[in-house]
Amino acid sequence: MIRVEGLTKYYGPHRAIHDVSFEVAEGEIVAFLGPNGAGKTTAMRIITGFIPASAGTAQVAGCDVYAESVAARRHIGYVPEHPALYPEMRVRQYLGFCGRLYGMGSAEIAEAQERVIATCGLEERADYIIQRLSLGFRQRVCLAQALIHDPEVLILDEPTIGLDPNQIRQVRELIRGLAGDHTVLLSTHILPEAQAVCERVVIINHGEIVAEDTPQALTAQLRQAQTVFVKVAQPADNISRLLREMPGVSAVEKVGGDPGAYLVDTAMDSDLRDDIAKFVIEHDWGLLELRAIEMSLEDVFRQLTTQEKGVA
């Protein structure tokens, strides 16, 4: 539904994105994840036809976003990073304006207005002047205008930015509810958001894609260095050294504030939990707790974006 190939964009001498390629299948929800300034907004602005690319192509619903820009834009609902509405207009009036620009007829607009007002929880604010709305409601109006023509593709640039936790939860639920009927590409720099909402994650850093997979697979990919948490009742003085001398162990770290607790890093892609358990019992230290530390997407993200090393 969205196909991006070799997108590159220069702002003067500054390279914002370089050779960005990815695809989003119909009905999929994909997160575009990266730190601030990674090039997420630039890529989205190219896909929505707001700015042209310096090189590369992007297609939405089979239409080239540059050559058939107006046709491509008909298939897209877009929420920009800094949504600016017309403050003097009323919510319903603004939605009607957007509907007309999408070529909808009056009856169709009236129906769509009620549909998106209900979907976005704007019933009580439908006749407010936009200027009088709180940020959270403005964000909902933005989402409502993106849905007014029931587009196949939704492009949401940081849709939960500036919202309070309750509103964030509501917007995420809304986005999840759109899955299946709509193809969603959403950008975020908040990891739990990607994990909570999306089926697939594209990680971008310094304008280049560094990884692309499901949140689970990405985490697994980086599990070559598994960490095991072990806690014992009577730790010997030399326990750290003894553990480090075990085959396959690369590092041992004492957990501060928790006597008898250690983090054991294993270098290879092997599960040492059984070996460690036996080892502790042999030495009669009294095994209290033993578990593998799950690497969160956050760790993956930090690793990918700080080491500048591709794993995909």
């Binding site: 602005r45 107006v70 046709a71 800094h82 017309y86």
Partner: peptide
């Protein structure tokens, strides 16, 4: 300056 141009220009208008 307000940025509403982005909302307008990403609609199917020339």
């Amino acid at each position: 300056s307000s940025g509403s141009i982005e909302m307008l220009m990403t609609k199917p208008v020339r």
